[in-house]
């Protein structure tokens, strides 16, 4: 298993938010993260202090390889609406240290 960093950036905010839509999205994302944790694939996460910034969240995940990590990145993008950038953490030792 290798570790990867997923960086999620939100595209420009929509003019209007639908309350029902946001509730649905929160539930969908919560479910997705819960499964990631359940499978032991979510090592850690980080949230920027300024919520207005473009970068909204980052995840450190475990995956069997680049293709699996890309699939997870695509899933996260779909469920969150973020533009997701995938960064491999190539050195295992450095990766573990860097996530803390």
């Amino acid at each position: 298993m290798s570790e990867f960093l997923l960086l999620g950036a939100r595209p420009p905010a929509p003019d209007e938010a639908s309350l029902g839509g946001i509730a649905r999205d929160v539930m969908a994302q919560t479910a997705w993260h819960w499964w990631l944790r359940r499978w032991g694939l979510l090592r850690s996460f980080g949230l920027p202090p300024d919520p207005a910034g473009e970068l909204r969240a980052c995840l450190v995940i475990r995956a069997s390889g680049q293709p699996a990590a890309e699939r997870l990145a695509a899933d996260w993008g779909q469920v969150s609406g973020y533009r997701v950038t995938l960064v491999p953490l190539s050195c295992k030792a450095a990766g573990r240290g860097g996530t803390r």
Partner: peptide, 17 residues
């Protein structure tokens, strides 16, 4: 308010409601 909801959307799924 819109931005507030979007922040909730970012944080609640990871940190919990």
């Amino acid at each position: 308010v819109q931005e507030t909801l979007l922040v909730a959307l970012d944080r609640w799924p990871l940190q919990g409601v």
